[in-house]
Design a protein around this nucleic acid. Structure first.
Length: 952
RNA sequence: GGGCGAAUAGCUCAGCGGAAGAGCGUCGCCCUUACAAGGCGGUGGCCGCAGGUUCGAAUCCUGCUUCGCCCACCA
């Protein structure tokens, strides 16, 4: 016999988890073989940035992926989950450069390219290791043998190949266009990396005098400093105020330059003065106007965000803000300033560095997005790729159909260097290997490789196939491409999902994945997005293993967290974080993952699911303490025969039927990515069916008694109950395993089970649909038992009787329910702690009756009554009770009845309803009405006897 | 300026055409030999507002209000 000391009362994940993780890894259970003949199921983990460690958002997405992968693996699929990390070019730059500035007061340029790269690699090593460690500890069944990095040799080869091919196809080109310049990081960023925020500013009117002395034209601008680079003034051709001046020249103040007035459709006559100064080098619109009118683009702001020649020497070297003040002052002094108004100005800020983006004209590399996007949009329209939740399709489509060319070059070092070589003769060569001689002039030693690297998302866009060996034609590629599902956050639909679609379709001719599941965004309990700056981030492992306030503060300090963050940490985690275990966190994430856009995560919520894991643990502990003498093979054989099935008691058939229903619910929910439905179905089953009812009903049969040896029937019954309990638990472990792999493996290994099963739960088969276990009759009977037991408990609680105290109770029953109640009287008695007499009438008056054991219990006082339904009511002799309170309770019930009856009568009295509603709906309403009427009659009856008792 | 979404119990959310639900919280009573990280029971809702469609609306339509989010070159 297993003693209780063998299993602790409280589940201790820290002891269990490392053991099974090692076991799974050592046995290679996470590895999928691409040559396996079984049906593949593949997911590629969105590679986390090597910018530090995983946050709770990663934990959410990865947990959902692991649930899918473990579930499909157990269903017999060749499930492969590809791990890896992303070099995160600009993010790592920002991180390292900040650190460099703080510790050594240096910029990357002080350090030089080679030294900087060494530091970046060291950082990558540290961060990458930390990330994979976290992923392992969370129990993620990633195929570690395949682990990749976006800057490993194979990925580099894929990037090179993709770049060269796209260049050869004319889909990558170099051009001088308006770009977003981030002066802080000293690089171009793409449109997507710019956040536009409205900031307070001014609208200045500036007077430009006509060269011919015939007056002046007033222009309006929010950026007066750019006037130094103006090369025209534009007015709308429909604006009759200006028709006469089109073609005239004006003198640009402060510079003396003469510039023309041009007619262009862009200026809105309603805005400002209707005349626009045109600075083609520093404004996207002005650039367009410049293109249309062949205007010169004069650059007056340099790459460091400072004014430069040919701006007048006075301003050169000033920052943009300084120049603005100086220009405004000088204009005013010269009498060129008109009205100045407050104005909200949209300002672009770099997502990464926060610096104000400077629009500039520069030579950069571009991907021609149009043709690629066309196919990517079509794939969504024809259903080759599906978005879940579906509403994200619109977001994706909107972007795809309004796409702009993608600027892919970055003036950074950490990344894939662009394979373009420039010869002094002016030739550009794009090649897979560095050319030694110029293909044009034939000279050697004249070639220089482009200094720039690619946007980090370029390699990410190739990830679904570069990880499988592309550009080589590998077996892995043919087996696992396309992936079945991509699980990621909606915030990177444009950055990543869209681009994988474009490149996947272009290079592979097929979508990279069939379904895109977009997760919610995890926020803190107040609904605020988590950020290190705010101090509300949670490291998943802190929840798994717990963390003291001191430890959290120490880490914040080492990460240079701002004061506000430290304050938040002190407030939110005053008592630290208790240890929950990986299973509790995983289960919580699944259970909270409804279709909403946000998940508010709080430690308390996780605690609730830790309690659930503990509940499961204790239920298993109970079972293991009572499974002595149990023979799994014998029971399995019994379950397979018709006679054996029929020998099961109603509670046994009920719990197996419920288990079957829950299995189906879980399957259905997971097919639809409804993780919370799946988790909640299991939670409810385990806690409120298996534990609250079945185990309670099983107890009397399991408890060892002396006569068991003699009583063959009792021994057989005990064995059946043992079998059902063990089977139900074993099946529950399989259902729950994808969500909570550790505790389920631990319990499953301990449970007695038929010997032919595999050596690990994670490679056992997921519960399959077996309709033969569905038993509506058992479910209906059990429902009746539960209703009656709950009714008894309610009466006891109402009258302040301790739950543990057994009291006599009469169950008045008519119709065919009597037999069921009589048969399961013991079940009611046990679960409600009552002594029940069951019958149509009781001895004596309606309030006095004889207990079933024969002892008379004539009651002089009053009884509590609870009407269960039209056929069943409970009468509980109570002696003296508070007649007023009981009357009020019954009146309240009658009130509810009346309301129901009123509604139903009105409905059934409506000829239109009878004529138009479906027959079954009408019939249902009729049944309900008669049920309610009967219930009301019984309640009134109870009220009458109560009144009588009150008077006597 | 365009687009998308959300308003349901104190909180977080599910339900999306035929009886208002869950978890947590809260309030009682209990250490009943698996579990106090537990058991039993209760309380709690003009389903944002106003119209409309329908025999029937939390659910569909329209408008309004309030909150989110995304996209956008009005100087």
């Amino acid at each position: 016999m297993t003693t209780s000391s063998a299993l602790p009362k409280q589940y201790d994940p820290s002891e269990v988890e490392p053991r099974w993780l090692r076991f799974w890894l050592e046995n290679g259970f996470f590895h999928a073989d691409e040559t396996s003949p079984t049906v593949p199921y593949a997911i590629t983990l969105p590679p986390p940035n090597v910018t530090g460690s995983l946050h709770i958002g990663h934990a959410l997405g990865s947990t959902m992926q692991d649930i899918l992968v473990r579930w499909k693996r157990m269903q017999g699929f060749n499930a492969m989950w590809m791990p890896g990390t992303d070099h995160a070019s600009i993010a790592v730059h920002v991180l390292l450069e900040k650190d460099l500035k703080r510790r050594e007061d240096k910029t990357r340029f002080d350090l030089g390219r080679d030294d900087f790269m060494k530091r970046a690699w060291a950082w990558k090593e540290k961060s990458g290791n930390r990330i994979s460690e976290q992923e392992k500890l969370m129990g993620f069944s990633l195929d570690w043998a395949r682990e990749r990095f976006t800057m490993d040799d194979k990925s580099n080869a894929a990037v090179l190949e993709a770049f060269v091919r796209l260049y050869e196809e004319g889909l990558i080109f170099r051009a001088k266009r308006m770009i977003n310049w981030d002066p802080a990081s000293a690089t171009v960023v793409s449109d997507l990396e710019v956040d536009t925020v409205e900031e307070k500013g001014h609208l200045w009117e500036i007077k430009y005098p006509f060269v011919d002395g015939s007056g002046e034209i007033i222009v309006a601008t929010t950026r007066p400093e750019t006037m130094l680079g103006d090369t025209a003034v534009a007015v709308n051709p429909k604006d009759t105020r200006y028709t006469a001046v089109v073609g005239k020249l004006v003198t640009l103040p402060l510079t003396g330059r003469q510039i023309p007035i041009v007619a262009d459709p862009w200026p809105d006559p309603e805005f400002g003065s209707g005349a626009v100064k045109v600075t083609p080098a520093h404004d996207p619109n002005d650039f367009e106007i410049g293109q249309r009118h062949n205007l010169e683009a004069i650059q007056v702001i340099d790459a460091k965000g400072k004014m430069c020649a040919p701006a007048p020497a006075k301003y050169v070297g000033m920052t943009v803000d300084e120049a603005r003040k100086a220009v405004v002052a000088d204009l005013e002094a010269g009498g060129h300033l008109g009205e100045v108004k407050d104005h909200k100005v949209p300002r672009g800020r770099s997502q990464r560095s926060g610096a104000v983006i400077e629009p500039m004209l520069m030579d950069q590399w571009w991907v021609k997005a149009g043709p690629l996007a066309e196919k990517a949009a079509a794939a969504a329209e024809t259903g080759k790729v599906k978005f879940v939740p579906e509403l994200w399709t619109k977001t994706y489509m909107h972007w795809m159909t309004n796409i702009r060319d993608w600027c892919i070059s970055r003036q950074l070092w950490w990344g894939h260097r662009i394979p373009a070589y420039y010869c002094t003769c002016g030739t550009t060569i794009v090649a897979r290997t560095a050319p030694t001689v110029c293909t044009s002039c034939g000279k050697s030693d004249t070639l220089k490789q482009d200094e720039d690297v690619l946007d980090t998302w370029f390699s990410s866009a190739l990830w679904p196939f570069s990880t499988l060996g592309w550009p080589e034609k590998t077996r892995a590629l043919s087996t696992f491409y396309p992936n079945n599902v991509l699980v990621t956050g909606p915030d990177i639909i444009f950055f990543w999902v869209a681009r994988m679609m474009m490149f996947g379709l272009h290079f592979m001719g097929k979508v990279p994945f069939r379904t895109v599941y977009l997760t919610s965004i995890v926020t803190d309990e107040n609904g605020d997005k988590m950020s290190k700056m705010k101090g509300n981030v949670i490291d998943p492992l802190d929840i798994v293993y717990g963390a003291s306030l001191e430890a959290l503060l120490k880490r914040a300090d080492s990460e240079n967290a701002p004061d506000a963050a430290v304050k938040t940490i002190k407030k939110n985690f005053a008592k630290g974080i208790p240890s929950m275990g990986a299973d509790a966190l995983r289960f919580a994430l699944a259970a909270l993952n409804t279709s909403g856009r946000y998940i508010r995560l709080s430690i308390e919520r996780v605690e609730g699911y830790r309690n659930f894991i503990n509940k499961l643990w204790n239920a298993s502990r109970f079972a293991l303490m009572n499974l002595d003498g149990y023979d799994p093979e014998r029971f399995e054989a019994q379950l397979t025969t018709q006679a054996g099935r029929q020998s099961l008691g109603m509670p046994e058939r009920w719990i197996l039927s419920r288990l079957q229903a829950v299995s189906n619910d879980v399957d259905t929910a997971l097919e639809a990515f409804r993780f919370s439905d799946a988790a909640n179905a299991i939670y409810h089953f385990v806690w409120h069916e298996l534990c609250d009812w079945y185990i309670e009903l099983a107890k009397p049969h399991l408890h060892q008694t002396e006569d068991l040896v003699q009583d063959q029937a009792k021994a057989a019954k005990r064995h059946v109950v043992q079998g059902v309990l063990a089977t139900a638990l074993e099946t529950t472990m399989r259902l729950l395993h994808p969500f909570a792999p550790y505790v389920t493996e631990e319990i499953w290994q301990k449970l007695p089970k038929p010997p032919q099963l595999p050596g690990s739960l994670m490679i056992t088969v997921f519960p399959r649909n077996d309709a033969s276990f569905v038993d509506p009759a058992a479910e209906a009977e059990m429902k009746l038992i539960q209703d009656v037991a709950v009714g008894c408990r309610m009466l006891k609680a109402t009258y302040g009787i301790e739950p543990a105290k057994t009291v006599p109770v009469g169950i008045r029953v008519s119709g065919d329910k009597a037999e069921v109640l009589k048969r399961y009287r013991e079940a009611i008695e046990r679960t409600a702690r009552v002594k029940a007499q069951i019958g149509a009438t009781f001895a004596g008056s309606s309030e006095a009756f004889t207990l079933h054991d024969g002892s008379a219990d004539a009651l002089t006082g009053v009884a509590g009554k609870e009407v269960i339904n039209s056929e069943v009511e409970i009468v509980m002799p109570l002696g003296q009770i508070d007649v007023t309170a009981e009357t009020a309770r019954i009146l309240k019930d009658i009130g509810k009845c009346d309301k129901e009856i009123g509604g139903l009568e009105k409905k059934l009295g409506n000829a239109d309803f009878l004529a138009r509603a479906p027959e079954d709906v009408v019939a249902e309403q009729r049944t309900r009405l008669s049920e309610e009427q009967s219930r009301k009659a019984r309640l009134k009856d109870a009220l009458a006897t109560l009144e009588k008792a009150g008077k006597s």
